[in-house]
Amino acid sequence: MKVAITSSGNSLESKMDQRFGRCGFFTIYDTETKGMEFIPNPNKEVQEGAGPASVQLVASRNVQKIISGEFGIKIKSLLDSLKIQMIVFKEPEKTIGDIINMLNK
């Protein structure tokens, strides 16, 4: 199963990004193969509609869960219809490595 985590940088030590649509990178983590991919977010600087565009990007990778600090108001109905689970995790100090360890527990 694939999980997307919003990240501020492209390493395991980088902190989780508290924003969804305008995060720095998306970490796509596969819990079965333990494979990992960092995708730079092309929607970081767009004027509006960053959230829905990011949903498209993440959904094209077939993820089933998204972990982020917060989701904007346009996101929920989109993710509901795509049957992607949202996990709101308000711990700005946690790194990507910490979260992956939690997922593997």
């Binding site: 869960k65 972990i67 929920k76 993710l79 509901d80 795509l82 049957k83 992607i84 689970q85 949202m86 996990i87 709101v88 995790f89 308000k90 711990e91 979260i99 939690m102 997922l103 527990k105």
Partner: peptide, 22 residues
């Protein structure tokens, strides 16, 4: 346990554990 919030998009299945920390 971990203080996260999550929703259940697959409503037919019951959620029994936290998807993050189990």
């Amino acid at each position: 346990s971990c203080g996260c919030y999550f929703n259940n998009p697959e409503k037919r299945e019951e959620i029994k554990e936290c998807p993050l920390c189990k």
